[in-house]
């Protein structure tokens, strides 16, 4: 297993946007899409998300496989929802009756889910995690949480290497995972060993921090500047999202 950021590096309009603008836009957009039940609005949102994805010029193959993996849960819903929603019968399968309402609902959820995931790939995954965490700092997320974020991401790779080293050692000793207690015991000890190593490492890190005069504050070196393109993208997307909200939730007679 390798932990990589396949979409983070590139040279496109989306890649150059300020991470703060991206985070705010994606959050608002996801909330609106998650809460809407209008098919028209969803359709417009899905097309918009796809357009932004297209401007990021990512590898279509990689994006496609991401989407396939994410849709597992949705697939389970498709197996159940058409048959469990009460409503007009559509067709019968093995004595079970599928309803129009159920299929509609499943379609709705599928579009919603994929729209949000596409927007997240287009805007969040086109940014390195460190940049996103920096941006969270400037968006007033509590200091401690930001620090945990930094350390967690920094050490995922280190601990993954430890894990690879331990599993290699097990493979050298002819360990083959099977359905028996020995396997579960060995894997549990492996996890225990990882916990132990990370605990000891955390103490060494803390001591190293103390040596360098850590007083409970991290100094963020990176500064972000808003460029004209950030303002442009931010304002247009805010207007777009506001438009979706108005169409969805403000009744026609008030307009």
């Amino acid at each position: 297993m390798n932990i990589v950021e396949p979409f983070a590096y590139g040279d496109s309009f989306v890649h150059r946007l300020d991470p703060r603008v991206k985070i705010i836009t994606v959050s608002l957009f996801s909330i609106v899409v998650a809460l809407t039940y209008e098919l028209d609005i969803l359709f417009v949102s899905a097309v918009t998300a796809l357009v932004i994805l297209a401007t990021a010029r990512l590898s279509i193959k990689k994006v496609f496989w991401r989407l396939v993996m994410v849709n597992g849960f949705i697939l389970v819903l498709w197996l159940f929802l058409p048959f469990t929603m009460p409503g007009k019968p559509l067709f019968t399968l093995f004595g079970l009756e599928a309803t129009v309402e159920g299929v509609d609902y499943a379609v709705l959820i599928t579009i919603k889910s994929n729209t949000i995931v596409i927007a997240c790939i287009a805007l969040l995954s086109t940014c390195s995690v460190f940049k996103l965490v920096h941006a969270l700092h400037y968006l007033y997320v509590p200091d401690k949480l930001v620090h945990i974020f930094f350390f967690t991401y920094r050490y995922i790779h280190v601990i993954n290497l430890e894990y690879v080293r331990l599993t290699n050692a097990m493979k050298v000793r002819c360990f083959i995972p099977r359905n028996n207690l020995h396997t579960y015991k060995s894997l549990a000890y492996l996890i225990g060993m990882l916990i132990l190593k990370s605990y000891e490492r955390s103490r060494r890190i803390y001591n190293a921090m103390l040596c360098r005069g850590f007083k409970g504050k991290f100094y963020i070196l990176e500064r972000y500047e808003f460029h004209a393109s950030d303002w442009l993208f931010g304002i247009i997307s805010l207007l777009f999202i506001a438009g979706l909200v108005v169409i969805q939730w403000i009744p026609a007679k008030l307009l």
């Binding site: 945990i148 350390f151 967690t152 894990y163 990370s198 490492r201 955390s202 890190i205």
Partner: peptide, 15 residues
């Protein structure tokens, strides 16, 4: 305790 909590978090991510 930040390093400790963060390293546990990454351990569970990997595990």
């Amino acid at each position: 305790r930040i390093p400790q909590v963060a390293l546990m978090s990454s351990t569970f991510f990997v595990a």
